[in-house]
């Protein structure tokens, strides 16, 4: 009698405990809420606007997982001190995490240290930062360049004279890209880089640079040009009637339109505006207390998580083109890691 009574009690206890655990778990999941600050220090292109918009959408999607996210945005043209002020403002507002597209790779070391001391998670995206108090989530700019360089070299059958049109001298991402294509082209004995110029990621300057190059070197076979200048470069190539030239492209919808109509021979590495959304999803997993499967040790500063770089060429052009048919001309082709994708990075 006594024994059965004890067993009954145990049964009840277990039931109650299970219920309580279950209840508390679901309750906890519902109660998770984070404040995330997004800082963007340059608003000179639609790419950046799309980056912020996609990050906001990604944050809203977490509601489906029972995680409430409040997004605070500071997006304006600022100098480096101005963007340091962004970070300090976010700390004043008591955010849980800051996701930043930084204006300088190194200048944020001290302020990120302050943020970390206050328990704020800092993630940089699109451009790597040297601070060991931050994690970089984005593409490998060197790999981005290597991918399109390899494509170009293969299209040229490993043979020919190539020119390169680059962005801004002294910008770290630009330097990494230069390293990326130089490494690839050097692997091909018969590919020669005959000229490299800077056109500051500007379409008009890209077009002028291409015109000058075409006039100076009549025997160009291939053009490796960075995004933001490919539209201009292609215009110059078409105007000169040099249809035999193979050049890399970019990922804006208006470029895809000309690509389709003119039948360009081109391919483009994708630097998706969705990088900030991917970074945000990684940040939320981290704030939920999950641990990375492999520590963030990639990159020049050993603090990066590199995400896959999509590539668009003749083989998948129609799919990509149709996927963004209804978007405006300035829209860039984008892919972002979803909540489920980023979950795979964690234990």
């Amino acid at each position: 009698m006594n024994k059965t009574g004890g067993r009954m009690l145990k049964k009840y206890l277990i039931k109650i405990l299970t219920f309580l655990t279950f209840f508390s778990l679901t309750y906890q999941a519902q109660a998770e809420s984070f404040k995330i600050g997004l800082s963007n220090g340059w608003v000179g292109s639609e790419w950046r606007t799309q980056m912020i918009d996609e990050a906001k959408e990604a944050a809203a999607a977490w509601a489906g997982e029972g995680v409430e996210i409040e997004i605070l945005v500071q997006s304006a043209n600022v100098d480096v001190p101005g963007q340091i002020a962004h970070v300090k403002n976010f700390i004043s507002q008591g955010v849980d995490a800051i996701i930043i597209n930084p204006n300088s790779p190194t200048a944020f070391d001290p302020v990120f240290k302050q943020a970390k001391a206050k328990g704020v998670l800092v993630i940089s995206t699109d451009a790597e930062v040297s601070s060991q108090d931050a994690v970089y989530v984005g593409i490998d700019q060197k790999g981005w360049a290597a991918k399109s360089a390899k494509w170009l070299a293969e299209q040229l059958n490993g043979n020919g004279k190539v020119v390169a049109i680059n962005g801004f001298a002294g910008h770290p991402a630009n330097q990494m890209r230069v390293d990326g294509y130089t490494e690839v082209f050097n692997q091909y004995a018969n590919i020669e880089i005959i000229a490299e110029v800077n056109a500051n990621w500007d379409q008009a300057q890209g077009q002028q640079a291409m015109q000058t190059l075409l006039a100076t070197y009549p025997d160009i076979n291939g053009v490796w040009v960075q995004d933001g200048m490919a539209v201009g470069a292609w215009r110059a190539i078409s105007d000169a009637g040099r249809d035999n030239i193979i050049a890399t492209g970019e990922i804006r919808r208006d470029f895809f339109e000309s690509w389709k109509v003119e039948g360009y021979k081109t391919g483009a590495s994708v630097n998706p505006p969705g990088v900030m959304a991917s970074a945000l999803n990684v940040a939320v997993h981290m704030m939920l207390g999950k641990n990375l499967k492999a520590a963030a040790t990639d990159g020049v500063y050993g603090n990066a998580i590199y995400i896959p770089i999509p590539f668009v060429d003749g083989t998948n052009f129609d799919t990509v083109y149709n996927s963004m048919k209804d978007e405006p001309g300035y829209y860039s082709y984008s892919e972002a890691l979803t909540i489920a994708d980023t979950a795979n990075y964690f234990k």
């Binding site: 100098d79 480096v80 001190p81 340091i84 200048a107 070391d109 001290p110």
Partner: peptide
């Protein structure tokens, strides 16, 4: 002061400060 605040060297750091 900028070097103290940013703890690093950056050849482009001053570009946007002139007009301000």
């Amino acid at each position: 002061c900028l070097t103290g605040e940013t703890a690093s060297g950056d050849p482009l750091v001053g570009t946007k400060m002139t007009l301000l």
